[in-house]
Write a protein that binds this DNA or RNA. Structure first.
Lengths: 196, 196
DNA sequence: CCAGTAAGCGGAGTGGCGTTCCGCTATGAC
DNA sequence: GTCATAGCGGAACGCCACTCCGCTTACTGG
């Protein structure tokens, strides 16, 4: 991880100091604006707040997806790592699944507009979609498999489908007192339980 | 229904023949393009296919929401009217609810991009959102209430929340063999059932 | 400390899209 | 046939993402 100088082949030079500084500024600016104006805030605004030109933002983050990934990487990573831990510390696999999904939902609903952009099938954000899937799908699959193995839930549900469904339910949850994504996700997870 | 000449007050003149013709063409063009290119197809394209200028489209349908509503009004109406009928012909209220939700889901998933636009909290589409809610929420509420009264489902779920949840689950269901909105909605509805 | 070099910068420019506006045209009344 | 006007079309404008290239600035070797 953290190539820094480009590990493969060993050739590449370290990045120039101003370049590193700008990248940092851009991440800070983006993080701040994502909170107040949502992840679809105009590129110009991000560049302006970071005190750089619009060209610079594209050099560091070719697509908006790249920028979003960079901003949220730590949190996604943390969520992914929480999976196995929850499986060990929870009473049952189904409980662990529920708690892990809650983490994911908490993350999504607090990121203004992220859920929309993550799910729309929008090709511009394919990289974002892929990143989330690569990182979180295996974790979800593991929890799901454990719950199935324990005989707690039905076995005909796919982890991809579940993640997409949960993501979708998180859309539009901010600033709407009448819509509580958490409650609906709970319902969905409850629906997984084997009928008896 | 069908004002035609503007019933209230009785004053207004009938619309000119070319205006009626253009409105018709626009509806046809929009309906066709919505299928192939989604409901967010560029306004210019719709105008072009209808053989009119872009100004004309705005005169007949001031916002995109108005156009979408006009295109799908019949189908939404039919869905709304199916509610009470299902309640009578189904074995239980919960079954009726499930079948009605299925109708709604079938409608949404076959309309490329409609679910996205319906839910995003996007202010441009407020009229669309409102229309769907006005028309379908009472129906949903009735079915929900009947199922609660019959003691089949939990009573802490709001019809608004349910409709939004179902709508959200329908996002991105087209052209994706790995994501079946119907199955997830089924799960959600199953989650409504009282545990026992 | 001083060139020389190229990595990196910025913002003007391009193109797509929604939306408005207004001079012109076709319609329907008389 | 004439006229008032509802209605038309598309040029024009503003907003935004994204590209491109002349200029600036950080690092390198002497």
């Amino acid at each position: 991880m953290n190539e820094g100088q480009g590990g493969a082949g060993g050739a590449a030079r370290p990045k120039r100091a101003d370049a590193r500084r700008n990248e940092e500024s851009l991440l800070d600016a983006a993080a701040a604006l994502f909170v107040t104006a949502g992840v679809e805030v105009p590129v110009r605004d991000i560049a302006a707040r970071a005190g750089v030109g619009t060209g610079t933002i594209y050099r560091h983050f070719p697509t908006r997806a790249d920028l979003i990934i960079a901003v949220y990487r730590h949190q996604v990573e943390a969520c992914a790592q929480a999976g196995p831990a929850l499986l060990e510390t929870s009473a049952t696999p189904h409980a662990a699944l529920g708690r892990w999904i809650n983490l994911f939902v908490d993350f999504l609903v607090t990121k203004h507009g992220l859920a929309v952009v993550l799910q729309s099938g929008n090709t511009d954000f394919e990289a974002l979609h892929t990143y989330f899937l690569d990182r979180l799908l295996p974790v979800c699959a593991e929890l799901l498999a454990a719950a199935v193995a324990a005989g707690e839930i039905r076995s005909d549900i796919d982890s991809y489908e579940l993640m997409r469904g949960v993501g979708n339910l998180c859309i539009g949850g901010d600033n709407n007192p009448r819509y509580d994504a958490r409650r609906l996700v709970e319902l969905l997870i409850a629906g997984l339980r084997l009928p008896r």
